[in-house]
Nucleic acid binder design. Structure first.
Lengths: 211, 211
DNA sequence: ATGATTAATGACTAACCAGTCATTAAGAGA
DNA sequence: TCTCTTAATGACTGGTTAGTCATTAATCAT
């Protein structure tokens, strides 16, 4: 009956607290999240939390780091190890990724970045270095590969790989803001987007396909 | 030397306060904005502010309404009064609009909507009714017009006019989060986007043009 | 066993801030 | 000029919360 009040598991604590904090920040954003609430979710006292994280802000940054790293690593390996043609990569792994993100909990990071980024320049810098610039250069590689082997023509995508990502971002924002009231079939939209892009940039060997 | 402490200009006050609040909310977001600060910016006491706006939240909503309404009205008139072909409209007024928004102060509203929307369902609903759904249906009209007169083929844009807007949203988010450190030529990107879209959806009478 | 070490607690405080209200003075009317 | 209405003030309060610290109890070393 008397649950052990003290557990003493120094190694696990930070990860447990970070996970709880992720939940809390995701639900409420930075300001509205109470440190007490994070501690309670982690089954830990506030004092202990402050033993591992000096301030609320440091905790916030730890959350971002912890949950972004794995995603980026996964994407990079996928890109680099793939032997698919550029088109096949866009229709396959890239589309999968694009469909997955707006449904994953990680979408919340976008909200946090937009909402809190301007107040935390170092966090934004971290995000840039570890996520955005790497993601964009991976996409550029794919596109250039397609151009080199003659299957894609030169297009705006060469200068702006962002255009591949913008509907993904849009899906995320939509799902955060409107999804509950105004469902959007993001999977279909993203498929349509890839179809359109490919129709625009493929050299005309054949000119069929896609709705 | 003794500036008049009391000015008594009942009619101007609400607009002055809303303008000050827009600045403050834009800089700091909702939670971090102090009502005292808004009052100071408006050159007014906090007590007076509470004479015109019952709560901070009501003030926030007034800000959104005040700054969104004119934009939407402008866009709607433009769409409805235009006699241009679908392609000309996309390359002209629509592209202008798309270029303008990410540079205007109104872009901040997107940040506020993403950050605070989930906590303010009625505000989100207002935004939907007055901005998003109207904007989308205007775009749908344009696209259908192009399809009807045979210049566009059926495409993903028929189901997802959002695809036209996603790079605009992307530009806004980029400019909020990264612009200071990593400039993006949003004008060029948006031009490239329209070029690609048109290449994808135009029926092949001619198949030349655009980089 | 027994002290030494340190993970963990939670009551406390110092600061902050949305919203109130008793008071002041500007302008309107007579 | 005097009175009445109301725009405008700003000190105050009640509630909230990030961060602290004196204390407690697991675990470890001997």
């Amino acid at each position: 009956m008397n649950e052990p009040r003290y557990r003493r598991r120094k190694e696990d604590r930070p990860a447990e607290i970070t996970a709880a904090a992720f939940e809390a920040f995701a639900e409420n954003g930075y300001d509205a999240t109470r440190v007490d609430d994070v501690a309670r979710r982690a089954g830990v006292s506030k004092g202990l939390l402050y033993l591992y994280f000096k301030t609320k802000e440091e905790l916030f940054k730890a959350v971002i780091r912890n949950f972004i790293m794995p995603m980026v690593d996964a994407l990079k390996t996928e890109v680099e190890s793939s032997e698919l043609s550029a088109e096949a990569f866009l229709r396959g792994p890239f589309l999968d990724f694009a469909k997955r993100v707006p449904k994953s909990p990680a979408k919340i990071l976008v909200r946090l970045l937009i909402a809190e980024g301007p107040k935390h320049p170092d966090l934004t810098a971290f995000y840039w270095d570890n996520v955005v610039s790497q993601g964009l250069s991976a996409l550029s590689q794919i596109i250039e590969k397609g151009v080199r082997d003659g299957s894609f023509r030169q297009s705006a995508l060469n200068d702006f790989p962002q255009l591949l990502l913008s509907p993904v971002m849009f899906s995320i924002v939509w799902s955060i803001v409107f999804q509950s009231k105004h469902a959007l079939d993001t999977d279909k939209m993203l498929e349509g987007h890839i179809d359109m892009i490919l129709r625009a940039i493929k050299r005309n060997d054949d000119q069929t396909g896609a709705a």
